[in-house]
Amino acid sequence: MTANMSRNHHWVPQCYLKGFTKGRSKKSTLYVTDFEVGRQFSSVPRNVAAGRDFNRVDIDGIPPDYVESGIAVFEGKLDKALERICREREIKGSEDLNLVLNLIALLAVRNPGMRENVRHSHEQVMKRVMDLTLATKERYESSFAKAARAGALNAEDILPYERMREFIDRGEYTISVSTTHHVGQELKLVDAILPLLGQRNWLLTRALPATGGFVTSDHPVILQWADRPMTGGLGGPGFALRGTEVLFTVAHDLALIGTFEGPDGVVHADEKQVALMNGVILGNWQRQVYARDDRFRYRMQDGEIRRGADALRHLGTWSR
């Protein structure tokens, strides 16, 4: 790995986060509410929603930062598009909209919480497989002997059935999934989601002055049923399903709502509408919520409009 290779990889791009700062720059600060550690503080975009080697791939013949470098090129174009959108408070061209939709697709599938869900799913499957393999000594020995003949492992490395049974029964292990696998699956999901986003009608929502503006989070793409009472018993919404909406805050004063049936165009949101959108976002973070300052408004199910400074006290801390 070369000395100048970036190791701090953002799953929420800095060029997007700076749209929620006062100066719209990487050096301007965000107001961060961290529900995991129970703190509210100011931070520059570089220091949030990032992890070491989050996009690193380990594939023969391909540089480890291949994906991160490609994302950086995309973010360079996206940064200019977001600057135009924020300045003009509208999305004028199809190219700028396409860049924003690519961002939404990426953000919908790439974050540590999603990766942990994938890892946990793999772990449950593997544990079930091991339980079946260890159902009898004969099945165990036959399965691993077959794997050794196929070259998947060395015969001398196979543990005796009794030791393996004891190890599995203790449950003192976890199944890991490589970052390379995560990245590959995420890029496939982006390819699947992006055309579905392009089929939606997008309503650009402008926050009126004195509303406190929109917030975002480390899990900023909201996919929900457009008719919220439908949620009880229909299962989770999907990007291809009609009757759903995608909510995405583009910047401090702009948000997008994408539906198959609804209108496109531009509307304005008053304090109650902005607070309602922010309340949805505050119900979908992985760990942190980002805003311009502590004066943003949000509204939860009780209908009361509250200020951002009260969010931690009102909603409490959260731990995995």
Rank of each mutant, 00 (worst) to 15 (best):
V57F: 07
D34P: 00
N55A: 10
G61L: 08
E116A: 09
R89P: 04
G19W: 01
D53Y: 13
E116F: 08
M130D: 03
E141Y: 08
K27T: 14
L134Y: 07
A72S: 15
K92T: 05
E68V: 12
T33L: 12
L30T: 04
Q124G: 14
R115K: 11
R139D: 13
A135K: 15
F74W: 07
G76F: 04
T29M: 11
S121D: 13
G23L: 10
N47Y: 12
L97E: 10
V109L: 02
R56M: 10
E83L: 04
K127I: 03
T33H: 12
I62S: 00
L103Y: 05
R46P: 01
V67N: 03
L99C: 00
V100T: 00
G19N: 10
R119C: 04
I62R: 08
V125Y: 10
E138G: 10
M130L: 15
G38Q: 05
D34V: 05
P64T: 06
R24N: 12
K18N: 03
G93M: 05
I85L: 08
K80W: 01
N98Q: 02
E36M: 11
D79E: 07
I104T: 09
L103D: 05
R89W: 00
S69R: 10
D131G: 15
N98G: 04
E90M: 04
Y140V: 06
P112H: 01
P64D: 09
G113V: 14
E141W: 04
V44M: 13
E138Q: 12
L97V: 02
Q124A: 15
F20Q: 02
P45Y: 10
R56C: 04
M130V: 03
R87K: 14
N98S: 10
V57C: 03
P64S: 06
I59R: 07
I59V: 15
E116L: 13
A108K: 12
V100K: 02
G70C: 04
D65N: 14
A108E: 02
S28K: 07
R119H: 06
Y16C: 05
T133C: 12
L30M: 06
K77T: 02
D34L: 09
K26M: 11
L134W: 11
G61E: 10
D65W: 02
F35N: 10
D60V: 14
E141M: 14
N55F: 13
G61V: 08
A105H: 07
T33E: 11
Y140N: 02
R39L: 12
G19L: 01
N111C: 13
V57Q: 04
A135L: 12
T33I: 15
K18S: 03
T29P: 01
N117P: 00
K80Y: 03
